[in-house]
């Protein structure tokens, strides 16, 4: 190996490059988000972790609501969009401050365990059964979701399940239970991923799947899937917001969680939710329900602004 002064250059050059890179990018480190915002009054603890379901993020709703909330209150929200099962588990460990989820039975058990408080109705939409346009299991003729599932089983048509303990997965399992079927076999496939991904898989495999309306409308342009059943009573998809219990978890940002909860059910926010999606999809993706009781929502699937 030949030595020469020029041979020093690569290493020193490389170190200089890396350091300048780190310095250059380091400038932004202190202020996440880059620009400083004019917060009305800076809360003592501005960081707020919102554990939520994929549908609120994938539909784009959070992109509207969170900036509104941040500007109004000065909090900085970290939305962690995971399945409802995981979001509730984060709440049960005190790793989130506020939860926006859609699995009523599982939510109630978290409240009963004392991990969450102030469970409040926010909005609903509905679940849909979607499938390939040629509808090999002839689900379109079914009147109830139970009948539809039976047809899928009889036809041994591919059904793609979320399989991830999300709110949609929990709903799907309860529907199979209502149908008296234990879904097993090669036709029943578990994607283990989020709603958008699961819809893609169902589309590629010419399969059926259960989806929330918001995600389906948001991603349907890439899919070869049609709605094969909608409007049956059990398909209601209800979202609640709740605070993680600060009495149980001292590190929880209680004031922030309270502020977010109040924001989501405030009249102005509910109006925004009720209009969300109309310009893009010709229909609202969520129906605001804060003014109603859960029984009222379950009794009639009608949507009227508060």
């Amino acid at each position: 190996m030949v030595k020469g002064s020029g041979r020093w250059a690569p290493l020193t050059g490389m170190v200089a490059l890396l350091i300048s890179l780190a310095l250059m990018v380091g400038c932004g480190l202190g202020a996440p988000g880059g620009e400083t915002r004019a917060a009305p009054s800076k809360p003592a603890n501005p960081d707020l972790i919102l554990a939520t379901t994929t549908s609120t993020q994938d539909s784009g709703l959070l992109d509207i609501l969170i900036p509104m909330f941040e500007q109004k209150t000065g909090y900085q929200v970290k939305p962690i969009a995971v399945g409802t099962g995981q979001a509730l588990a984060m709440g049960e460990r005190g790793e989130a401050d506020v939860l926006l989820v859609h699995a009523p039975d599982a939510e109630k058990s978290v409240v009963e365990k004392g991990a969450a408080i102030n469970r409040t109705l926010v909005m609903h939409n509905d679940f849909l059964l979607v499938g390939p346009p040629n509808d090999p299991a002839e689900v379109k003729g079914a009147r109830t979701v139970v009948e539809a599932l039976h047809r899928i089983v009889v036809a041994r048509a591919v059904f793609v399940s979320r399989g991830d303990d999300s709110g949609t997965h929990k709903m799907e399992l309860s529907l199979w239970k209502a149908a008296g079927v234990r879904p097993e076999g090669g036709w029943y496939q578990q994607s283990g991923s989020g709603m958008g991904q699961t819809l893609s898989i169902a589309s590629e495999k010419n399969g059926y799947t259960l989806t929330d309306r918001a995600t389906y409308l948001a991603v349907k342009k890439n899919l070869r899937l049609e709605i094969v059943l909608e409007g049956d009573g059990p398909l209601l998809n209800v979202y609640h917001v709740m605070q993680v219990n600060p009495a149980k978890f001292s590190k929880v940002n209680a004031a922030g969680a309270r502020a977010f909860l109040e924001f989501v059910v405030a009249r102005e926010t509910q109006e925004v939710i009720g209009k969300f999606g109309v310009d893009k999809y010709g229909q609202a993706l969520f129906c605001p329900d804060a003014a109603k009781s859960e029984a009222e929502v379950l009794a009639s699937n009608s949507c009227s602004l508060p």
Partner: peptide
């Protein structure tokens, strides 16, 4: 912002 953050995080980690 996303590109810059990618460079910042991975650059710092590499350094």
């Amino acid at each position: 912002r996303i590109t810059f953050l990618t460079l910042r995080v991975s650059g710092t980690a590499t350094l």
